[in-house]
Simulated scan of single mutants.
Amino acid sequence: MSARPPKSLKIYFDGGARPNPGPFEVAVVARGVVHFFDDLGEGSNGDAEWLALLKALEVAHALGVQAFDLLGDSRSIIAQATGTAPCRTQAEREQLTRFTTLAAAAAPRRIRWIPRAQNLAGIALAGRRR
């Protein structure tokens, strides 16, 4: 009888810039806890989504989980991070390098796109703005 693989923790991430470009806002949700990150600089929404993905990976590492999935609503960032789309700018290539380096310690089982309405981190960011 073989052991079952550990259940994978779902970690949601979202980032944005208000206005675009503007100050970054990032949220990560893991185990029902919302982590907000401020004072991360300024740039575009795409830059903010990359930061959100990196912060999600950092949260997973801080929690010490072995099996985790990263879920976000930015198709382009997820495609770049998974290698299904090229990083077209130097900034995107640098973010991918940062992600790959950080993931070397403990990589996500999957990085998956979900609709905005299902992204708990995006919902948390929207609620914070009200």
Rank of each mutant, 00 (worst) to 15 (best):
G32A: 09
A121G: 14
R129T: 04
L63K: 10
A126V: 07
R4E: 13
A121Q: 15
A85R: 12
V33N: 10
L71F: 02
G46A: 01
P23C: 04
T101A: 09
A27H: 11
I111H: 03
A56M: 12
P108R: 06
F68N: 04
A79F: 00
A104T: 05
W50M: 04
A121L: 15
V33W: 06
A56V: 13
I77F: 00
L96D: 01
A30M: 11
F36P: 07
R110W: 06
P86I: 08
L57D: 07
P86R: 14
V29C: 14
V33L: 12
A30P: 07
R18P: 00
R109D: 04
P5T: 07
I123V: 14
S74F: 01
T97H: 12
T101F: 04
S2T: 09
L125F: 09
A121F: 15
P21I: 07
P108Y: 06
T82P: 06
A105P: 00
T97D: 12
A62F: 02
S8V: 15
A81M: 00
G43L: 05
Q66W: 01
E42G: 00
L102G: 07
I123G: 06
A81C: 00
A30H: 11
V34D: 02
R93N: 02
T84Q: 10
G83F: 05
L96V: 02
G15Q: 08
T89V: 08
T101E: 10
S74Q: 01
Q80M: 14
S8A: 15
G16V: 03
R4Y: 04
Q90P: 08
L53G: 05
L125N: 07
A30R: 12
R75E: 08
D73R: 03
L70Y: 02
G64P: 05
T97K: 14
E49M: 07
R93P: 01
W113V: 11
D69E: 13
R128H: 09
H35T: 02
A67G: 01
A27K: 10
D14V: 04
I114T: 11
A121E: 14
K7H: 07
R93D: 00
C87S: 14
H35V: 04
V59W: 11
L96C: 03
L9A: 12
S76H: 00
N45M: 03
I78R: 03
P5D: 07
R109P: 01
A60I: 11
R18K: 10
P19K: 05
R130V: 11
L9F: 08
Y12F: 15
Q95N: 14
V65G: 07
A30C: 12
G43V: 05
Y12A: 08
V34M: 02
G43M: 04
K7D: 12
L54H: 08
M1N: 08
A60L: 10
R116F: 10
C87I: 06
L120G: 08
L125M: 09
T101V: 10
A126D: 13
S44E: 00
F68W: 05
D47A: 13
F99K: 06
L70D: 02
L102T: 01
I78E: 01
W50G: 03
A104G: 03
P5F: 03
F36Y: 15
P6S: 08
A85W: 12
